[in-house]
Every structure is written in C-alpha cells, then in structure tokens.
C-alpha cells in the first residue's frame, strides 16, 4: 500500500502545500494578517494563462512567467492600495479588507470573463510520464517537486544571506523593534507581499495544471490548504509553514489510500479531524516560532 507511487504523490502534494503555506505565513509573520485574498493570486495566474493563450498564443514558458509576474504584481498592488491605508487601524479592519479584496477579484473574474471554467494551456510535458524501473512517474510531479525544492533553497538563501532577508526575518520576529531601528517598514512589507505573490503564482501554475482549467472560485481550496498547513506547522514560523505543508500533503495522500471507497468523499472531514487532534496536543502548531504576536501599525 505504501508504494513508491504513494510516496511520490504525497511529496508532490506536500511540496505544493508547503509553498502555499509559506506564501501565507511570510505576510502573516509581519502583519499578523491572514490574507484571505491569497487564493485569488492563484486564480489570477490561471486567467493570465487563459487570456494570453486565447490572444497571443505564446510559448507556454513565456505565458507561465507572465502569470507568475502578474500574481506578484497583484499581490504588491493589493498591499499598496488596500492594506497599507488600513494598516494602522485594527487587525479586524485588515482582515475584512482582505475579504473585500478577495470578493472583488472573484467578482471581477465573474463579470469580465465568465462564471464557467476556462481552459488553461499546459505544456506537453505535464501529460507525459517518466518510466523508471517499471514505475511511471508523471513529469508534472517531478517538476512540482524540483521547482519547490529550488524555490525553497532560493528562499532560504535569500532569508539567510541577504540584507532584505535578515530584515524580513527580523520584522517577522518583532516588527515594532525593527521599525524602531530604522528599517523602512514599507519596503519590508512590500517585499513580503511580492514573495507571497511569487509563491502563489508558481503554485498556481501547477494548481491549474491539475484540471487544465480555471474558475473564479479556484482560489478557495488552496487558501484553505495554506491556512490549515500553517495552523499545523505553527503560524509564527517559516520553517513551521513548510513542515506543516508537507505534513498536510502526506496525511491527505495517506487518507486517500486508507479510506474505503464510500468514505473518500469525506476525505477533507477526516483531514480536519487529524488537524484537530494535532491541535489538541500542540495548540501553537508543531513549531513554535519566536514571533511576538504583537501587531504593528
């Protein structure tokens, strides 16, 4: 039962979940804001692919790059236009603002494009498989895992070795203090949103690749996954988010194999049951970060 295929599927899903969770937490760590408009970044990546494909029909890689850039830019703009003006107000104001941004983006897609699913172009490689020792491994899975690893390593280097990275980690640790020391708050926050957009955009490519289509509400699922993964891993730690993401992937894949056919529809309910159990024993998540929980304006 615990075959190589199972393991590969679990790691593939885990990689996506880890990136998703990381994108959510990198903003949460600094602003204590759970950005509910995060899922819409995935939607936007999907629609960028759709629109470019129907109009210009560029090579997939170019369109993918554009999709990710648009997600980064959207993330950056929402911070600038929507979150920055309410940053000094209450946390509730920011939270509700994020709901508003989410609704706005979804409705824009409904009105301007269509409530129905739209086809997204996929590279040929996504439907091909690599056969190793009699096991067919979909290229999509290999690409997901490799891209995630490269991205995680790149982010680690960024966070550990660069000035921006140290400032970002300091801000996630104690934003107030970071500001008092003269680190420009807006630059740090904007960077966090850009990185969040980058992660959502790249996950978006693989996410829409699963069904080869995009709908206005496609962001709901990944947002929930990111949220649950960060709750498992610990909201105050970037490492926790990654660990939580992989754990989510493994448990979810495991449930898919374990549950009898009749219960498979309830896979998510079982997933939440496991989460509740984890939280009973580790209410702060598996990895306790040093974040102060102190919010800033």
């Amino acid at each position: 039962m615990l075959s190589v295929e199972f393991l590969l599927n679990a790691i593939t899903l885990g990689s996506l979940c880890a990136l998703l969770a990381l994108g959510l937490v990198i903003v949460y760590g600094i602003l204590k804001l759970v950005n509910f408009a995060y899922g819409e970044l995935i939607m936007i990546t999907g629609y960028t692919l759709y629109l470019l494909n129907t109009s210009l029909q560029l090579p997939w890689l170019v369109m993918a790059l554009a999709g990710v850039l648009v997600a980064m830019f959207t993330s950056y703009s929402t911070e600038l236009v929507a979150f920055r003006p309410v940053r000094t107000k209450s946390l509730t104001a920011m939270l509700i603002t994020s709901f508003a941004v989410s609704t706005l983006l979804q409705n824009a897609a409904l009105l301007l494009i269509s409530p129905r699913a739209r086809a997204v172009p996929l590279p040929k490689l996504f439907s091909a498989s690599l056969t190793v020792m009699g096991i067919a491994i979909p290229w999509r899975n290999i690409l997901t895992v490799v891209t995630s690893l490269v991205l995680l390593i790149a982010l680690t280097v960024l966070l550990k070795k660069t000035i921006l990275g140290i400032a970002l980690r300091a801000a996630a640790d104690n934003f107030r203090m970071t500001r008092l020391m003269g680190v420009p708050a807006n630059v740090v926050i904007s960077s966090a949103f850009v990185i969040s957009g980058l992660l959502a955009g790249i996950v978006g490519l693989f996410w829409v690749g699963r069904t080869a289509s995009v709908t206005p509400t496609i962001g709901g699922g990944p947002l929930l996954i990111a949220f649950v993964a960060t709750v498992i891993g610990g909201m105050n730690s970037l490492v926790g988010a990654v660990v939580g993401g992989y754990i989510y992937g493994v448990i979810f894949s495991f449930l898919g194999v374990m549950l009898p056919q009749t219960l498979l529809d309830y896979r998510e309910a079982f997933m939440f049951l496991v989460v509740i159990l984890i939280l009973l024993f580790r209410p702060e998540g598996l990895i306790r970060g040093a974040g102060t929980g102190e919010r800033v304006g």
């Binding site: 980690r169 300091a170 640790d173 104690n174 107030r176 203090m177 970071t178 970060g289 040093a290």
Partner: peptide
Amino acid sequence: RLFRELTVMEN
C-alpha cells in the same frame, strides 16, 4: 527586545 530567532551576529 532581541530578535530571538536570529543569531547574535544577525541581530
């Protein structure tokens, strides 16, 4: 108010 998750050097 140190940054508790950063090293002494990074702080």
